[in-house]
Design a protein around this nucleic acid. Structure first.
Lengths: 152, 152
DNA sequence: TATTGTTATACTCTATAACTATA
DNA sequence: TATAGTTATAGAGTATAACAATA
């Protein structure tokens, strides 16, 4: 009997393999996973405050400080003053950072195509819908953990 | 247009969310991902030398020393002398360690059921087949071992 | 008073290299 | 000489707490 346990097993295996693959390709560019994740987020959101990045990456603001420090030292990103709020900074990509993200996006497109090679369009759509559902359920669980106690 | 890029996006999102969920549930037991991974490995292999565990987890022997120290301090595992080789130790689970692994397996079953709730059996089978294909392609691209419950 | 980012401190995971006790 | 595990050291990622500047 092949039930839901099989789906979770596969998803966990795929998560591990994807992580492995991503880390390998990062090593070639000299970036760590956490720093690349931040870079990727800025690449997609545009210049962002560190608070926004902390929320997006689900880590503490203090953590963002260290990652941005390292990315700035490596020439991938820089801090710019926020136009309206002098407390905040806008993390932006440098030319090197933007180039690096473009290369990564291209590599990711190749990977995406390779992973679903052989599926026709309707299968692709259905698979996408199922993954949407799973992602939504997971996101819901994390937002509101079960058994959530009296929060003191 | 929803193409293969969407599938990879979702898989990456799910990988991130699963990791978060697993780490959260571990926190309630007082275990970290790396320590749980080691515990899980011993649970499945039986008493093992630290060298064997280093190979299984693909980390350095020095790393295993620290993880076993922490697990022993927490009462989850203990070191026993190797019967034939006085240089080596056998890492074994305590009662608490074994109980904890059983509880995690149960929690994982609940999660699996919740994630695919609402899918009928044929959808489940098809989703499983598609994920099989993706996992196989990924594994082919990389050289990688079996899965683990802690995603690390 | 609340928010943004930082300094200070600490823990976990990981690695390399040198050392010890055995084999 | 080779192997099993540990001590020593280091860097990355993460967290909490206290603080400064600004809103």
């Amino acid at each position: 009997m092949r039930s839901d346990g099989h789906v979770l097993d596969r998803l966990l295996q795929i998560a591990l393999l994807l992580q492995h693959d991503m880390v390998e390709s990062l090593g070639r560019v000299g970036l760590t996973p956490a720093r690349t994740h931040l870079l990727w987020e800025v690449h997609h959101r545009g210049p962002s405050t560190q608070q926004a990045l902390a929320a997006a990456l689900r880590v503490t603001p203090r953590n963002i400080t260290g990652l941005v420090d390292a990315l700035a030292a490596g020439g991938y990103a820089e801090r710019r003053p926020h136009p309206n709020d002098r407390r905040a900074t806008l993390v932006t990509l440098t030319g090197l950072g933007a180039e690096t993200m473009k290369g990564m996006a291209a590599e990711r497109e190749r990977l995406a195509a390779e992973l679903t090679d052989g599926l026709d369009e309707s299968e692709l759509v259905q698979l996408g819908r199922h993954l949407d559902g799973i992602a939504n359920r997971l996101a819901g669980m994390i937002e509101s953990p079960h058994g959530d106690p009296a929060l003191q």
